[in-house]
């Protein structure tokens, strides 16, 4: 019986079922550090997005969770123990990895049957997951002839095979058409709603904004944020307030301060940063000024992400050295 839990207090983390816990997880290839001291917890009941630019170390981290790559240092456990120590690993974690993990000459059906056999799973369950992902028509055909979207569906079928309590999916919407993307999104949310741990990587903040509730953001292998989607928007970028008033110059002078930026693109228009919309309204009332518009411009998730990873993107269009680190706003690192 899985009890859904929706983000309980941090102190109970160790007692939660179906959790991924990384502690100081590090992976080096020669002198290149792919993953650098990652500490995070992925909790059940919600979709957790794993976000970072290409080359940030997302796939490496996921492979370490699955025991495919050994960490240089640090540990990662699933449900309290390393993946390798699970007697029924496919039931602990179902995974869809970025690169296809299917023999191209084998049919989808036989691929799933071979995986199922390692855990003594009946062929009826194989038929079930084939139906679930909608591959009935092509299940007996060579997987090598599959389109990218069909390949992703087969990957998801194998991830769901043993009805796992944790799902790890690396860029699951890559190559899918809008209908397929919507299908994955709904699937992930319903799997999480059943109380499972769902950990999904993406380099697209826009996709994560629609799917995930919690985000773990990494750049150059380092943890940059471990936060809810809402908190990320609120915290990572300053909010701009658009003010439209006939007495723009007067209001602008009144708002001026050390941490406040006021800019104007039209005679009656101000773009204010550093002051909350409510405060601007109060100032205007005190001065008896008329406001025609007072709009906080919520920074989009994409902007928040760009802000956060600007210095940490592995491959810049223009070569800019990345000095220092951005302070992670980590919640579960404590």
């Amino acid at each position: 019986m899985r009890v859904p839990s929706y983000g309980g207090p941090t102190t109970y983390e160790g007692q939660f079922p179906h959790m991924i816990e990384a502690r100081g997880l590090t992976k080096r290839y020669g002198d290149k550090t792919a993953v650098d001291g990652l500490t995070f917890t992925v909790r059940p009941g919600i979709v957790t997005g794993f976000l970072g630019p290409n080359g940030a170390g997302k796939s490496t981290t996921m492979r370490m969770i699955l025991g495919l790559d050994a960490p240089t240092s640090g540990t990662v456990t699933v449900d309290g123990k390393p993946y390798r120590e699970h007697a029924k690993p496919l039931q602990a974690v179902g995974a869809l990895l970025e690169a296809r993990a299917v023999h191209t000459s084998r049919s989808a059906y036989n691929h799933l049957r071979a995986l199922a056999a390692t855990h003594g799973i009946a062929n009826s369950r194989v038929d079930e997951v084939i139906d679930l992902v909608g591959l009935q028509e092509v299940a007996r055909k060579r997987a090598g002839g599959f389109s990218l979207g069909m390949g992703q569906r087969l990957g998801i079928a194998s991830a769901l095979l043993a009805d796992p309590s944790t799902l790890i999916l690396d860029e699951p919407v890559n190559g899918l058409d809008p209908e397929g993307i919507r299908w994955i999104r709904d699937l992930l949310k319903s799997l999480a709603a059943e109380g499972r741990t769902v950990f999904v990587s993406s380099h697209l903040m826009s996709e994560m904004a629609l799917t995930a509730e919690h985000l773990i953001v990494i750049g150059r292998g380092r943890l940059m944020a471990d936060t809810s989607v809402a908190d990320l928007i609120a915290g990572a970028s300053t909010t701009v307030v658009t003010v439209r008033t006939p007495q723009a110059a007067e209001l602008g002078r009144a708002l001026a301060g050390p941490d406040v930026t006021v800019s104007s693109t039209a005679a009656d228009l101000l773009e204010v940063t550093g002051v909350a919309a409510a405060q601007i309204g109060e100032v205007a009332r005190d001065l008896g000024l008329v406001l025609h518009e007072l709009t906080p411009q919520q920074a989009s998730l994409e902007e928040a992400f760009m802000d956060m990873t600007r210095d940490e993107v592995e491959y810049h269009a223009a070569a800019t050295p990345a000095p220092g680190t951005t302070a992670p706003t980590s919640r579960s690192a404590a």
Binding site: R2, P4, Y6, G7, G45, I46, A87, K88, P89, L90, Q91, T118, H119, G120, I121, A122, R125, L132, L161, A162, D163, D186, L187, K189, S190, A192, A193, E194, E213, H214, S228
Partner: peptide, 24 residues
């Protein structure tokens, strides 16, 4: 964070238990 939004988005598929044995 509440569960409400998730449940509303997609109906939970049935969780008929899948018989799984240890790897041997």
């Amino acid at each position: 964070m509440t569960a409400g939004s998730h449940v509303a988005v997609a109906p939970a598929p049935s969780r008929a238990t899948v018989a799984v044995s240890p790897v041997s």
